[in-house]
Design a protein around this nucleic acid. Sequence first.
DNA 1: TGCACCGACCAAAGCGCTTTGGAAAACTTT
DNA 2: AAAGTTTTCCAAAGCGCTTTGGTCGGTGCA
Lengths: 385, 385
Amino acid sequence: MSCCNAAKTYLEGGLPNRDVLRLGCEKSKALWTLDAKAQPRDTPMNLKELSEHLNLSQTTVSRALNGYPEVREATRRRVLEAARQFNYSPNARAKGLATGRAMSIGHVIPLSNKHEILNPLFGDFITGASEAYATGGYELVLTLVPDDEEAAHYHNIRARGNVDGIILHGPRVNDPRIDLLDRIGVPFLVHGRVFGRAEDYAFVDIDNESAFLRATRHLIALGHRRIALLNAVETMDFAYRRRRGYEAALREAGIGIDRALIEVGGMTESLGMRAASEMLDRPNPPTAFLCSSIVIAFGVERAILRRGLAMGEDISVVTHDDVLSYLPNGTSEPLFTATRSSIREAGRTCAQELMAMIADPGKPRPGIMLDADLILGRSTGRAPG
Amino acid sequence: MSCCNAAKTYLEGGLPNRDVLRLGCEKSKALWTLDAKAQPRDTPMNLKELSEHLNLSQTTVSRALNGYPEVREATRRRVLEAARQFNYSPNARAKGLATGRAMSIGHVIPLSNKHEILNPLFGDFITGASEAYATGGYELVLTLVPDDEEAAHYHNIRARGNVDGIILHGPRVNDPRIDLLDRIGVPFLVHGRVFGRAEDYAFVDIDNESAFLRATRHLIALGHRRIALLNAVETMDFAYRRRRGYEAALREAGIGIDRALIEVGGMTESLGMRAASEMLDRPNPPTAFLCSSIVIAFGVERAILRRGLAMGEDISVVTHDDVLSYLPNGTSEPLFTATRSSIREAGRTCAQELMAMIADPGKPRPGIMLDADLILGRSTGRAPG
DNA sequence: TGCACCGACCAAAGCGCTTTGGAAAACTTT
DNA sequence: AAAGTTTTCCAAAGCGCTTTGGTCGGTGCA
């Protein structure tokens, strides 16, 4: 007990001591040091030890740290100061067990071994989400799940209870995961939507169909009739909707749909390069390309430049632009005419909305549509001829 | 060996039961169903309930699930079967509290608000790491930390105890985080190294200096004298080392270092495009470019093509290639001559090594150098003139 | 003076798991 | 048949926190 008093006196004493002050304590053999620069302890300090040091009960210390009103202001300050000096922070697992809240959110990414379609978007989406989690005090736990193990995985995620909610990435057309998660009963939010299903789940999405409808209309208005679509695999919901928008615009203009002008695959530079090269070499090449990702669009531009053609004059290109930090679409005037919607912003919004859902499970599930503006860049112009 | 694996095996093995079988449970009013398709419970089943159901003690059920030898084979099967049917899997927080192991690994990414240098690499690195974690039964928790909050964050990460180890991304020259983590005493592994410091920590890296030395030598051997370097900001360790390799090759060839041929910044397409354009417009332009990322290299190629020049003839380009899934370096013959090392492979290796460290804290800290081969592509040729 | 009330604190009971230290039953051995 | 061994199981004590249901003085008020 004497050691504890000594510590208390010292703690209240004020200036941090540069010397390593050691205080023996009868209950533990650990040597306490008051300086963060000193030897690390074998094990972090816990609430019991902290409260013994302060000559307070665990109850009071816990309440002081968590901002409950039942503690005197002076006591609270003393507790906070000690916690700071001993670098105490509560064990998250124990806290989680006691409160029933994990304070972390799971991001589940389907790992189709064929197409890692989300890879290029990933860094930026996560960056946005993390910004939100940091302010909300949540952790982000990430799981990439092979397609065939998904169901098992979602069940476990609930039972294991180390996340309070899930963000679902890369929804597919008729994705069964929504129903699954609904049955399992874990709060979740979908980044994207599921075509062919009532929107009775929480989601954050953009209007892919409308975006590509407008993009295609724009190309048609410029006189283009042969417009190629370079899309992600159309089992992905977003890709399917983009295709619908594209086709709707062609139909309303009385332009037939030419399957030879549609190419699908991963969102890779080489898809853009390869598909554009191949199409441009045909007898009756397209005069415009519509791309589902700026990664693809850069490949298309390369194919165009390689042929000595000029993008925006000989060949027009419109792309969806996720505003990836490493592939900026020009500095002042955009390089590509694009339907633009920041994936990072989407990440932030998803995180915020899911945190709100968890905080208040009673409130209706949000269905948020982010804007996807059609912005004009230098990659489009009147169809030649 | 763990219950989770056992459960998984079962889940994949057996056919789902179509019938909804209800079993009353004396202690709780909940109706148990044996079918995943049935109504969700308000709260997942726990060990106590499961053991009451089986008329066994929690001890025995726990041991059966965790593969301990003290249970009869018949009993174990009975337990496993019930666990599968009730979709039981142990609460991770409780398990963590009891065992002292969180079964999860933290990835801490510095969030310099200026340069999000790791974004393009992120998706692929994480994909690799996740593959390893999945087999090891670990979760991946991700934290992006603003530069100025790092120290506090690392301290907390230990005290909060929800990760068993940390993978450190984006180490900088003289990075203080190594010492910090060492003092804190949490197992960690660095992806990369820290120049100007003894290598007494665990790391997985490539030999950036040697790679860029060889790359530069190759360009010199082709007759290039004016070789530009487009690098990441050189506070990043990998970028600093690449710069050293570049300079060493120039020095040994008696070529002076021209600061005007060195540009640093984010690993973005536009850096490549902008810097290359600007340099090529000079009276005495470089004949070759050395790029720190394939993202940059694509920008350089674009600048070259825009000028009607031919890459590999008029202008040579060598890049480091992280083998990003969405920016493949050609299909058969590589597009770019490159120092190649898969970031995804690095992710997998980091994860595996850290798991091994955690499993056996006694063993020496691994220092692993992954290969970075110089592979020849179509982007290099003899210097013109 | 007596009584209610309030402010400031505490002891102890969980949260769901693992693990220690038995203990009863089933076999062996002597 | 008694004594040891092995097998198979169990009760209960943690892990580190929160939270319930108090206690114990002091105040305010009649």
